[in-house]
Nucleic acid binder design. Structure first.
Length: 496
RNA sequence: GGGGCUAUCGUCUAGGGGUUAGGACACCGCCCUUUCACGGCGGCAACAUGGGUUCGAAUCCCAUUAGCCCUACCA
């Protein structure tokens, strides 16, 4: 029963890496890491029109950015190179394997050729459903009417269907296909509600056609020795079909764990309308990958420390190491969760706050103007620490924009409020200062304040307005230091 | 139509026969403060509905309602 833990994530290259998919991948990854197992990335590229190299790259880059490394799968940047013993890890390159498996099933009489044309099928479906009965190929109302027993015109092309259990097989439980889902618990699907489904599409002539999704998945998962199939809830109903196939092929069943879906804020299926769907967009919004991992992990999963759920904000902010240590499929919710951008923002803010300026620097660079890279380390350190309270990297970059951009305009209200004659007189003294080191500015300012009978607040606000056009900026000494004396003097010119 | 899953504050959730139904985010208020923030303190706010079972139900059972998934020669 117990074998090495192997999990997999199998996205289709659709042109983006979906946030819901990333969450599923994250659970697979956490599970593999926790149990010292392997995590596979497999590309389901049977939709030829969308499966471009470019789209595969998007998956690889998205996974890499969000920090989910795979032990087996594509080697990024290549088209047909893979790591791992069970390659290739792209379905289109596995067609020979699929066809061989199908041939074997047909030879062993566990699957059969179906020569019913689409037209015939559509017609039959229509007439059956007109009577309020569900149409199932070779099942129920339609039992015995298909190609399972009677072979029709052998000159016609064919699809291949799997023989589904009749209801009396010994591995069924009271006529039902069952399994104990690691998240959903014991599940049972009456066998007579499942029909002989197609495993290979019709091809030209006397060929086996392109295999269908549910077939490929099982072949891949068995041949790649996947021990735990952790996937989206939307596959629950596919599982009994797949189990029948595992049985037919005589393969050991993996454990199944179906993770609930992620819904939008309004409870509807997550879509573009709710904001960002693609992992790339979260990067562009200025979220740290660690924050995305945490926020995603905490949707539907409640980590328990000695049976206790987090009780403080501190306990909510798990590191990767803690997540790996605490991860348990039993602590995953059965019901879908709504995605809350506010919570992601909060987590991001907290992680930004805790990071050192060195850690933040590389993540921040893409949001900064080119001049950022040429700044000295001490300067960057002040810049980062002065803005490290923002919710996102983007916020931080915006909070620093004043350094590179002279004010386009000055808020009239603020000018009126803070630019008094005394304040301007004090600004003249500020302009005379030469040393912008923090510990020099403070005593110098005290002298100026005393001379003019001002409070720090009055001077600071006047300075902000003069330098930034608005009464908002990092702490005033940092603001001066970051802008630098030369530029400060230029911006002060019009006011003194 | 058939099959399957789900249902606690606005959101994520804890709790699974006896609790003032707990926490986090969001929101609101107060404090701190050189601005904006951060931070601190406090507040608001929930067991979908109806039947059972029971001395007692958010918790167990059934039904209803609502949502989602499968029911494709899509994945």
């Amino acid at each position: 029963m117990s074998r090495p833990v192997v999990t997999r994530f199998a996205p289709s290259p659709t042109g983006m890496l979906h946030i819901g998919g990333v969450r599923t991948a994250l659970f697979c990854w956490l599970y593999a890491r926790k149990h010292g197992g392997r995590f596979i990335l497999r590309v389901e590229d049977t939709d030829l029109s969308r499966s471009t190299d470019e789209n595969i790259r998007i998956i690889e880059e998205g996974m890499a950015w969000v920090g989910l490394d795979w032990d087996e799968g594509p080697i990024p940047g290549t088209t047909d190179e893979f790591k791992g013993p069970h390659g290739p890890y792209r379905q289109m390159l596995r067609m020979d394997l699929y066809r061989a498996k199908i041939q074997e099933l047909v030879d062993r009489d566990l699957a059969y050729r179906c020569r019913c044309s689409r037209e015939v099928l559509d017609e039959r479906r229509k007439s059956v459903e007109a009577q309020g009965v569900p149409f199932q190929y070779n099942r129920g109302y339609d039992a015995g009417k298909g190609c399972r027993d009677a072979h029709h015109d052998a000159s016609q092309p064919y699809a291949v269907r799997l023989k589904m259990p009749e209801g009396t097989e010994s591995w069924l439980e009271e006529g039902a296909i069952t399994w104990t889902d690691l998240i959903k618990g014991h599940l049972a699907f009456p066998a007579d509600t499942l029909d002989d489904w197609i495993i290979a599409r019709t091809a030209e002539g006397n060929e086996i056609g392109v295999p269908t999704y549910n077939f490929c998945v099982v072949v891949d998962d068995t041949s790649m020795e996947v021990s735990h199939v952790i996937r989206g809830d939307d596959h629950v109903s596919n599982t009994p079909k797949q189990i029948a196939l595992y049985r037919a092929m005589g393969c050991e069943l993996p454990e199944f764990a179906h993770v609930p879906m992620i819904l939008g804020k309004d409870g509807a299926k997550l879509s573009k309308r709710h904001g960002a769907l693609s992992i790339t967009e979260y990067r562009e919004m200025g979220f740290l990958p660690a924050a995305v991992r945490l926020a995603l992990a905490r949707l539907s999963w409640t980590p328990k420390v000695a049976g206790q759920a987090p009780e403080t904000a501190e306990e909510e902010l798990l590191t990767d190491a803690q997540m790996i240590q605490l991860f348990d499929l039993h602590d995953i919710q059965k019901s879908p969760a709504r995605f809350d951008m506010d919570k992601l923002s909060w987590m991001n803010q907290k992680l930004v706050q805790r990071a050192s300026w060195q850690e933040l620097d590389p993540y921040l660079t893409p949001f900064m103007p080119a001049a950022w890279k040429t700044q000295s380390e001490p300067w960057k350190q002040v810049a980062i620490k002065a803005t490290q309270k923002g919710k996102s990297l983007k916020d931080m970059a915006e909070a620093l924009a004043f350094v590179w951009e002279r004010p386009q305009s000055f808020e009239p209200k603020s000018v009126e409020k803070f630019m008094t004659e005394t304040a301007k007189a004090a600004l003249r003294d500020v302009a005379a200062l030469t040393d912008y080191a923090h510990d020099r500015l403070e005593p110098a300012f005290n002298g100026i304040l005393e001379k003019h009978g001002l409070k720090l607040k009055d001077l600071a606000q006047a300075l902000r307005v003069a330098l930034c056009g608005k009464p908002v900026s990092p702490p005033i000494f940092d603001t001066l230091f970051l802008i630098g004396r030369e530029e400060v003097l230029k911006r002060l010119e019009r006011w003194v």
